[in-house]
Nucleic acid binder design. Structure first.
Lengths: 302, 302
DNA sequence: GTTCCGCATGAATCGATAG
DNA sequence: ACTATCGATTCATGCGGAA
């Protein structure tokens, strides 16, 4: 079912019952350069966590906070080009503390990206439930990160039903027996501003989520500093794409986005500048493919 | 024990065992004007939730999103003056959606306040568990607000031990169900059974909180419908002030900050531009004072 | 004195309609 | 075209009266 594309070491092809073909392309190089080879209006979702700004220019792609915006803008310009008009760009980022203050490069980046043509549609909060322990005299542990949603157009694809969550416990008692008032409320209160049809909820188990996501951080990944849990890209891939769509991560890192995308039957493109990381993801892709041969993997169902 | 200051209708004086004297000053007028009469380096904590930008120009001080920064800067300039060097300014705010996009006036305000001399020390997240309902094709419910922390200096007073939370699920669930009365009793009656339990937790496995606060909005209260729950100013007053310190709320609204401050034995100043709100807070202060005469209120202990 | 249950009410947002 | 108004949609909480 799985076949490596001929003549291309960096592309994986997943065939499912001969009907579907999921492609995963990995590129080694600088996002700013590699993106030039990607066609315009190609991606349905861009989900990425770029290297964080760092004063010490040692670590992963270290970019100084003062240079961060200038460094990112040429890349976001290309991202704007390769994203479909109906697509969404989700940027996972959080400003560091520099000299006792929160850096402003993230909020400056938002303003500059708007000038570039992006719409800043929403800011989700990733609440990291098990964040880093630690104690400082003048601040507490930082347990949240930004998930900035940008779009090209006011209209974009959003599959809200895919991420619905179970209704709160209150509903069990509340909806047990509906009073007459609940059924009538819709008509009785005209002009009061807040009519509601409780009866509509009777047969419902799930509700729509909010813009605060509660997810634990992943602890096992030692090789990569900026690792997020699989549930994070998974949630946004569910929300903003359908099967066979294209997902892009221009700062692939440990490849979480692409691996999750393939598992969810989305085509994906990954770009990574550091050879070690790039090779590690390639190996991971190979082993994932092996797993797919096992019937237990469940990919042959349907 | 309580006495209204002579010749001043807007000042409340709380005497405790003749040792302590807690003053609450309320002012009617525009913050930008009233602040001019407040001495420099006067406040230990400024906690406020200004009117959010509104497109409708009819309601409460409606400021258009485009004019918001220009409107706020003269006020924040005065706030910078009246704050003690060791003090903290906590600004509760959230940008609205305008034309399908998040407005940028809040992040522009951060940048401008930095130019004004403020340090942007931290951004806390207030996760509103019971946020406003609603469904839209392109966004989910907004369940968080910003709590921006600004300071004059890199060194400021922070009493971290005062806001430690017990770890462990049992304790967490227990705390969640505490009524406001229980909390008051905890503050006043150290010897009671409940206080003992709290003391035990403190000695055992208390842990420092993070920069994400989980609090529900108060909605069912007929007498005082506040923009934020009492637990919100309470948390920051605990964290950034000691007894006898001075708390300022330049946009008093329903007076939650000042009422909580007085209960926690902090002096406070409140400013409100709308006469109806101002009068309502004055009445509330009077009735709070009456409660303080009751021994059950627990304010005479210690 | 507890527990249960009804219910008003929130710093909302979109799209259509009207001026 | 551009702005103001209105109806429709939706969840979770704490209060207060009842059992």
């Amino acid at each position: 079912m799985y076949d490596k594309k001929q003549g291309n070491e960096n592309s994986w092809l997943l065939l499912i019952s001969g009907k579907m073909e999921i492609k995963t392309d990995l590129h080694l190089g600088d996002a700013k350069d590699i993106l030039l080879d990607i066609p315009s209006d190609y991606c349905d979702l861009i989900f990425t966590s770029p290297p964080y700004a760092d004063q010490r220019n040692k670590t992963y792609g270290g970019v100084h906070p003062d240079d961060y915006v200038d460094w990112f803008l040429p890349i976001s310009e290309q991202l704007l080009r390769v994203l479909k008009p109906s697509g969404t760009f989700v940027l996972n980022i959080k400003e560091k503390v520099v000299n006792g203050e929160r850096s402003t490069y993230v909020i400056e980046l938002i303003l500059e990206m708007k000038r570039q043509g992006w719409l800043w549609t929403e800011e989700f909060i990733w609440h990291k439930k098990n964040c880093y322990p630690g104690k400082w005299p003048n601040r507490f542990r930082d347990s949240w990160e930004r998930l900035l949603q940008f779009n090209k157009q006011k209209k974009f694809h959003m599959y809200q039903e895919e991420v619905m969550v179970p209704m709160g416990d209150w509903a069990k008692n509340r909806l047990k027996n509906l009073s007459e008032v609940d059924k009538k409320r819709d008509e009785s209160r005209v002009g009061s501003g807040f009519g509601k049809k409780i009866a509509n909820w009777k047969n419902r188990d799930n509700v729509y989520p909010t813009n605060v996501l509660h997810m634990a951080t992943e602890c096992g990944n030692k090789n990569h500093s900026a690792a997020f849990p699989e549930s994070l890209p998974e949630w946004f891939i569910k929300l903003f794409t359908q099967e066979n769509d294209v997902v892009l991560d221009p700062f692939m890192g440990s490849g979480t986005t692409n691996i999750v995308a393939q598992r969810m039957r989305r085509n994906s493109v990954g770009i990574e500048i550091i050879p070690e990381y790039y090779e590690a993801v390639k190996e991971k892709m190979d082993s994932v493919q092996l797993c797919l041969f096992e019937p237990e993997a469940g990919y042959e169902k349907t």
